[in-house]
Design a protein around this nucleic acid. Structure first.
Length: 553
RNA sequence: GCGCCAGUAGCUCAGUCGGAUAGAGCGUCGGUCUACGAAACCGAAGGUCACAGGUUCGAAUCCUGUCUGGCGCACCA
């Protein structure tokens, strides 16, 4: 059973009273942290939002609302004090009983706290990474992987049905060049003077692929690669792809990212699906012949210019395959398609929407989150990365360097819409300057206390007094369902990371001011609930961004 | 030239369905371990929210314009 924030009943009750004050106008009471903790536990500006509709002074509305809150039996018991401040804010201080009840409720909800809030529930297909199988995944792919998988986890947590898919660009000129490059490296393993094509793949990893291939087939092709014939090239391309995809998925799995499906571009060509897609576009009038080529009239759907589908030499473009692929995806019965693309592909969005629209689907079913670039900093200086020079940092190297937990945390820490610098020195450090350990440490500390099995009576009642740090911690716990909802709605895993830092900070503050073991029974009972609730929320939050929650560090 | 993303503290960035004195981490300075883990806590300094107009009782947030940076504008993928 999905569990709401303990604040929800309060919010609706206050909205109800506010509406009554404003003569029945619709009221949404937004409860949020006040500017200063000294003002109370929560603040609401509901009186100000109603001022216009009710044509009354906001302070007047606020005064009346406060009187009604104090007069109401149920609300009065939960609210210790309510006062009007500033232009019409109402500051609320809640009773210890409310805090104790709320902590209990969160503990009772367990891992259902904040879960399954999606409305409506959708079937969602998310495609991400989709790196060409001609080289190892690099840091940019790592960010897309951390983002895409984080979004997928959050969507699942929210209750959606999610499928993760990887589109494999295993067709065309790049694959041929890759095959030729592997063939050359393979030949070199047998002492042949075979050269990687000038515009081919020069990276050393191709040697590794060639070695793996030699392990598989021995010297079978040794006599046929100098120079290679078409059949041999095709064989090397196919095998090279499979091997590269193998290391790709192994690296991603190490990064805790798994896909439900890999969709091969080649199957679209060989199955005649690309041709069928083009025919459909011609039939619907969305494609036309001009200058010897076949064009997709994407301008109809808001693109800047029309795009070529089949070149004048008869070969099809990348877009032609993507037409087939997206028509296929749109027709599978999903409610929503997410294509996570890198910033260098954002010009492609209009084309993709055109495909969806031309296929007769609602173009709004397609969402294309763009992940901005990530660069690395080390020793205070930008780490230069070049594909040509082979100084590209791979996902595997990043993991070996800073670890999966730090890599995933850092890569989703910032909004995907912002280009950012990842400071390797900070990410590497196992000290207080590393936010991922800061959060994990809070989890481990709680586990340490709970391992002592402190005991408390079940019906202890609420403490008479609360420490400010107890109030702050519980109120932050109350925000969890909102954080998840925002992260889901806006496809923003970074909100989860930021929240975890807030929560860990509140916990560490609480830890330093409040002991658990050896206090009065009702105090132990309340604080144990706080610990359990915090541990659960931290563990769930970390899981949503693919980071582990250790009991010991 | 056109389009997308951005410009907020020394650095890296949150905050942008308009709300009180704009936040965090790191860095800097100063404190705190004979009690559940100091990978921690407490305090201090640090800002013309790129700039200029506009809307509003109220703007980092909305509108217009300008400047700066990244990325993209293929019969490449």
């Amino acid at each position: 059973m999905p569990a709401d924030s303990p604040l929800t009943p309060l919010t609706t009750a206050i909205a109800r009273e506010a509406s009554a004050v404003a003569g029945g106008a619709d009221a949404v009471a937004h409860l949020e942290a006040p500017r200063d903790a000294g003002f109370g536990d929560l603040a609401t500006n509901v009186a100000m939002t109603l001022a216009k509709a009710a044509k009354r002074n906001p302070r007047e509305i606020a005064d009346e609302l406060v009187a009604r809150i104090q007069a109401d039996g149920d609300l009065g018991a939960l609210v210790q004090s309510a006062e009007v401040a500033g232009p019409g804010f109402i500051n609320l201080t809640l009773s210890p009983k409310w805090f104790a009840d709320s902590a209990k409720a969160i503990v009772a909800a367990g891992t259902d706290y904040g879960r399954a809030q999606a409305d409506p529930v959708e079937r969602i297909l998310i495609e991400f990474v989709s790196a060409n199988p001609t080289g190892p995944p690099h840091v940019g792919h790592a960010r897309q992987a951390a983002y895409g998988d984080g979004v997928a986890r959050i969507l699942e947590y929210a209750g959606h049905n999610v499928t993760r898919e990887y589109y494999v660009n295993d067709w065309g000129r790049q694959m041929q060049l890759f095959g030729a490059s592997v063939a050359a490296r393979y030949g070199q393993l047998f002492g042949l003077d075979t050269q990687v094509p000038e515009d081919g793949y020069q990276g050393d990893y191709v040697i590794g692929i060639a070695e793996l291939m030699r392990d598989q087939v021995g010297d079978t092709y040794a006599g046929r690669v100098n120079p290679p014939d078409d059949e041999v090239l095709a064989e090397f391309a196919t095998r090279g792809r499979d091997l590269m995809l193998g290391t790709m998925t192994a690296e991603l799995e190490r990064f805790r990212v798994r896909f439900d499906a890999f969709f091969s571009e080649t199957t679209l060509h060989e199955g005649g699906i690309v041709e069928r897609g083009l025919e459909a576009l011609i039939a619907s009038g969305d494609a036309y012949e001009s200058e010897g080529a076949l064009w997709f009239r994407t301008t109809t759907y808001g693109d800047e210019k029309d795009r070529v589908l089949r070149r004048s030499d008869g070969s099809t473009t990348y877009l032609a395959a993507d037409v087939a692929y997206h028509l296929d995806k749109a027709g599978r019965g999903d409610d929503r398609l997410l294509d996570v693309l890198g910033a260098d592909h954002h010009g492609y969005i209009a084309r993709l929407r055109a495909v969806i629209a031309a296929g007769g689907f609602d173009p709004d079913m397609l969402e294309v989150p763009i992940v901005q670039l990530v660069s690395l900093t080390e020793g205070g200086e930008a780490k230069r990365m070049s594909k040509r020079a082979g100084t590209l940092v791979t996902l595997g190297e990043l993991i070996d360097d800073i670890g999966v937990d730090a890599a995933r945390f850092f890569l989703v820490q910032r909004s995907h819409e912002t280009a950012f610098d990842l400071d390797l020195d900070v990410a590497r450090s196992q000290s207080n300057e590393n936010p991922v350990y800061y959060v994990q440490y809070a989890h481990a500390r709680i586990a340490g206390i709970l391992a002592q099995n402190p005991e408390a009576p079940a019906d202890a009642g609420a403490p008479a007094e609360l420490d400010p740090s107890e109030r702050a911690l519980l109120l932050t716990l109350c925000a969890w369902p909102d954080v998840v909802r925002e992260a889901e709605r806006r496809r923003s895993p970074h909100r989860v990371a930021a929240y975890l830092q807030d929560l860990a900070r509140d916990f560490h503050g609480f830890y330093h001011r409040c002991r658990v073991v050896g206090e009065a029974p009702e105090v132990v009972a309340f604080r144990l609930d706080l610990l359990r609730a915090t541990r659960t929320v931290i563990a769930m939050g970390l899981d949503l961004i693919g980071v582990e929650a250790p009991d010991r560090m």
